[in-house]
Amino acid sequence: MAATEPELVWPLPHVVRGLDILGLWVPPPGRRWRHLLVLAFVMVSHVCLLLTVNASIIMDTPSDLPRLSFIAYNCLTYIGLASKMFSFSLDGQRLTELLRLLAASRQRFPDKEGHRARHLVTATRLHRFLQVTYRMNSAYWSVAPIIRIVAAGSASRASRDLVIPLWLPLDTRASPAYETLYCLQLAFGWTVSETTVLVDGSLIALILQVAAELAVLNDRLAATAADIGQGVPGATRVQVSPASPSSLVVRERCGSSITTMSRSRYARDEMYQQLVDNIKHHQMIIRCVSLLQKLLSRATSVLLFCNTVSICFQIMATAVV
């Protein structure tokens, strides 16, 4: 039986509200004007931070290595985050199809051991951990310039640093440009942080739910193998009559021959149906894995490349310092 539209919800229930608000994923029939406007703001936030941070390393390259390393780290980080967000928001059709398959699997194949519930608890804990860590880091980055100004004991232009180093063709430390840029960076930074948490939490939940389907299939295969190992119930056994050594006398030990044949046929049909269901479940899981791989391949490749370059750059900077 196919999944109905109301069942097309994320395996992580408390994430779907945030995805809906930011317009990253909306159940069919798709995004409306409200979702498109919010999604446009999210994309503008990523693009603005990406361009201004990269411009700072191209147009105003710092001379000291620690600051250059810090700005390069920001550039690579925002490249990876922006690619992941754009890839996620543009794959709405694949996400919906994956959710349909997971919903259909939950309906057709029961989970007697509770694998789906345990994986849901794990995904919830990981999402909360990401929320705490990202929000703590965002809060620290937001108040760090204010703390430096207070520690300096004056609000001079020299102590006015922005949350994220950027380059613009104007004096970013003069009022009111500094205050405006500071507020914009706070808004854009929190948007990028919350978007990253939602995207990461959603992808982790989907990965764990597909892994739960594999565990459910493994249990079903183990149960089918156990049934085959026990043999078909009601089987016919034979005895040799000592009174007739030249011939075999077949005696039924489990009732009449008609009852035994009907039970045996029913057991074989039931086992055959279990095998067919397991094959269909396996094909559904293969389809889920294929969709999940397409969802993760682009963003993960770019993010892995950026992180690798960033780690190498930080190692070289640390060695030089």
Rank of each mutant, 00 (worst) to 15 (best):
T4W: 07
E5D: 13
P11C: 01
L12W: 06
P13N: 11
P13C: 09
H14V: 08
V16Q: 15
V16F: 08
G18P: 10
L19H: 15
L22C: 02
W25C: 04
W25A: 00
W25V: 08
P27V: 02
P27N: 04
P27K: 02
P29W: 08
H35D: 13
L36S: 09
V38G: 02
L39V: 09
A40I: 02
A40Y: 02
L51A: 05
S56W: 05
I58T: 11
P62W: 04
D64H: 07
L68W: 12
I71Y: 09
A72F: 07
Y73K: 05
Y73G: 00
Y73E: 01
N74W: 15
L76R: 02
Y78S: 01
G80W: 03
S83A: 13
L90T: 01
L90F: 00
D91Q: 12
G92N: 05
Q93H: 06
L95W: 09
T96M: 02
E97V: 00
R100Y: 10
R100K: 14
A103V: 10
R108W: 01
E113Y: 03
G114R: 05
R116K: 14
R116L: 03
R118E: 03
H119T: 07
T122K: 07
R125H: 06
Y134C: 09
M136R: 03
A139M: 11
Y140D: 01
A151T: 10
A152F: 12
S154T: 12
A155S: 03
S156T: 15
S156W: 04
A158V: 10
R160Y: 06
L162D: 07
L162P: 14
V163S: 10
P165L: 04
L166E: 06
W167Q: 01
D171R: 15
P176S: 03
Y178E: 06
Y178A: 04
E179Q: 14
E179C: 09
C183T: 14
Q185C: 02
F188K: 04
F188E: 01
W190S: 07
V192Y: 12
E194W: 14
T195A: 01
T196Q: 14
D200M: 04
S202I: 00
L208V: 00
E213C: 04
L217Q: 12
T224R: 11
A225F: 09
D227H: 13
I228V: 08
G231C: 08
V232H: 07
V240E: 12
S241V: 00
A243V: 07
P245L: 01
P245W: 04
R251T: 15
E252Y: 13
S256C: 15
I258K: 12
T259S: 12
S262W: 11
R263W: 00
R265E: 10
Y266K: 15
Y266S: 14
L275T: 10
I279M: 01
I279A: 03
I279L: 01
H282P: 09
H282Q: 11
Q283V: 05
Q283D: 06
M284H: 02
L291Y: 06
L291M: 07
L291E: 05
L291Q: 03
Q293I: 00
Q293P: 03
S297M: 00
V302F: 00
F305A: 05
T308D: 06
S310Q: 13
I311H: 03
F313Q: 13
Q314T: 10
M316F: 15
M316H: 14
M316W: 14
M316S: 13
A317G: 07
T318L: 13
T318V: 11
V320H: 12
